[in-house]
Structure formats: structure tokens, C-alpha cells
Computed example of a mutant assay.
Amino acid sequence: MRKIDMLLAEYAVSHQTKLNIAIHYICVPLIFFSLIGLLASIPIPNVITNALPVFLVPYAHLGTLVIIFGLLYYLKLSKALFVGMLFFSALVLLTINFVSLFVAVPLWLSMLLIFVVA
């Protein structure tokens, strides 16, 4: 059995109830989203952002770095999981950028609230 199959089998055994499954479908993505958003709130040096093309600057943060490492891990596990996480991660990064531009409260505060609720 491949490693990913063993991990998913173990996960399935420990998550049987409908309530547990429903909570995981909602809260796990929200927790991921909020953690990436919190990391995006940490300022990075201008030396890095000045070296990037303008369209990449909103995504130049520690959250993106964590996503890249996570995607490499998923690529090692399964190409299908990698593709799914690539799309989800892109959506997360786009949404965090939207929140940082259009929500009145600071990004770190909105992400912290989401994390606590989730």
C-alpha cells in the first residue's frame, strides 16, 4: 500500500461520525486559510518585494512560502492531491489578497477571528 493510502485509511478510521466529518469540511479549510493569512500579515523586507514583478508583490509573504513547501509535500504523496491543493491554495492566496485590500480591519485581526471561530 502506498504511503498516501495508509494515511487516508488511518484518517478515515478516526473520523466516522457525521458531525465530525461536517466540522472537518468547514473548519479545516478555514484554519488553513486563517493560518496562511496570519503568515501573510508578517512583513517581509523590501529588498525581496522590490526584486519581484509588481503582480507578484501581494503574494510575497511567508504564507506563500508555506504553501510552496506544502505543495511539494503533496506532489511527493500524490499528483491528484497536488493538483487539488494547487487550486485550493491559489484560491486561498487570492482571497487573502482580497481581504487585505477590501476589509476594514487589519488582516491579522480578521484571520485571528476566523482561526478562533474555526
Rank of each mutant, 00 (worst) to 15 (best):
I68D: 07
F87K: 01
P45L: 13
T95D: 05
K76C: 04
L91H: 03
V103Q: 00
V92F: 05
P43Q: 01
A12G: 06
L7N: 08
M6A: 15
D5I: 09
V28L: 09
P43N: 02
S89F: 01
H61C: 03
K79H: 03
L77H: 06
L71S: 02
L71C: 03
L109Y: 09
L71V: 02
L39T: 13
S34A: 15
P106Q: 06
N20V: 01
E10R: 13
A51F: 14
Y59D: 11
F32D: 12
N46P: 14
L107R: 07
N50Y: 09
P45Y: 12
P45R: 13
I67E: 11
G37S: 05
I67P: 12
L112Q: 01
P106W: 05
P58E: 07
I26M: 10
V13D: 03
F88I: 01
P106K: 05
Y25N: 03
T17A: 00
L7T: 06
L39W: 12
A12Y: 07
V57C: 09
L91G: 10
M111I: 11
V116F: 11
D5L: 09
T49C: 02
F32P: 10
V66A: 15
S14M: 04
I36R: 03
D5E: 15
H15G: 00
V117F: 15
L86V: 00
H61L: 03
F32W: 15
L93Y: 02
L86M: 00
G70L: 09
I31Y: 10
A12P: 04
A90W: 10
I114P: 09
C27D: 11
I96V: 02
V92M: 05
H24D: 00
K76S: 08
I48Y: 10
L112E: 01
P106F: 04
F32E: 13
E10L: 14
I68E: 07
S100G: 04
L81T: 09
I114H: 06
N50F: 07
Y25V: 08
A22D: 06
L72I: 12
F69R: 11
N97F: 02
L94R: 06
L39V: 11
H61P: 05
F115M: 01
F32K: 11
K3I: 14
A80K: 15
E10I: 14
L39A: 15
V92L: 04
K79F: 06
T49M: 02
H24M: 00
V66K: 12
L65D: 12
L107H: 05
I4F: 13
I21D: 00
L107F: 04
S89N: 02
L52N: 08
V13W: 01
V47G: 10
F32M: 13
P58I: 06
L19Q: 02
F115A: 00
A12M: 08
V54A: 14
S34V: 08
I42M: 06
A9K: 12
L109R: 05
L72M: 11
P29R: 14
L72D: 05
C27W: 11
M6Y: 14
V105P: 11
S110D: 07
F87P: 01
L65T: 13
F55G: 03
K79L: 04
F88M: 05
T49W: 02
A90F: 14
S14V: 02
A51P: 12
I26D: 03
V66G: 10
L39R: 12
D5W: 08
R2G: 05
